[in-house]
């Protein structure tokens, strides 16, 4: 890609289409210490904010990937350009995932500073939860072409974790808070499958 194009795409996209989303994600981060204790926690207690609240960042960011082009005439204009539209969407996804990584990491450093026992597996677990929660909404919005349905799906998944709990088996999001650290790889698999399926649907069904 020619010089300056990628930078332009990212900066314009961020400013006009996703600024509020990124701010909302930071809002989640700032609210966490208000709702949860974040000092001198052991691993299981530290899992609570990292698993139950911080991953909401995923639910805010990932379902919105296709949102700016929900208007079909905008989508046609963007798609008629040389740069692949789905490539732009993938770029957005990567940026969102990067922001989640960054904010989760920053928050864990803060917790460490507050004498919590934080570990790499906590980070991996929190990150997996955010991805799983977000990718559910991502998949739904890719299919329905409606970001509201995307948010709805993410939130239903979230609420189901309070209501159904263990009935969700390996896809239970709050397993670390219950002292189980081994199931999180399933969430990575879930997220990967849903993201791949969402893009595949867009590529092979919607853009046919």
């Amino acid at each position: 890609m020619a010089s300056g194009c990628l930078a332009k795409i990212v900066s314009s996209d961020t400013r006009h289409n996703f600024l509020l989303h990124y701010l909302a994600a930071i809002g989640v981060l700032l609210l966490t210490p208000v709702i949860f204790g974040v000092s001198r926690l052991d691993e299981v207690l530290a899992a609570q904010p990292l698993e139950i609240f911080l991953p909401l960042m995923g639910a805010i960011l990932l379902p919105a990937v296709f949102m700016p082009e929900q208007n079909e005439s905008i989508r046609d204009v963007v798609r008629s350009k040389k740069t692949a539209y789905l490539g732009v969407c993938f770029l957005r996804l990567i940026i969102s995932v990067f922001i989640i990584t960054l904010l989760t990491g920053a928050f864990m450093l803060y917790m460490k500073n507050m004498d919590c026992r934080v570990s790499l597996r906590l980070f991996a677990g929190s990150f997996a939860t955010a991805l799983a929660l977000g990718s559910a909404g991502f998949f739904a919005s890719a299919l329905s072409d409606n970001v509201i349905v995307g948010y709805m799906t993410s939130i239903i998944y979230y609420i189901a974790n309070f209501g159904l709990k263990d009935k969700l088996k390996v896809f239970y999001l709050f397993s670390m808070s219950a002292g189980k650290f081994g199931d999180k790889h399933w969430l990575y698999i879930l997220a990967a499958v849903l993201v791949a399926a969402g893009f595949a649907y867009r590529k092979f069904v919607k853009e046919r």
């Binding site: 208000v34 709702i35 949860f36 204790g37 000092s39 001198r40 207690l45 609570q48 904010p49 139950i52």
Partner: peptide, 11 residues
């Protein structure tokens, strides 16, 4: 020990 939102927080 407080539970402002149902989650453990020590003050």
């Amino acid at each position: 020990v407080c539970y402002p939102y149902g989650f453990y927080k020590s003050v």
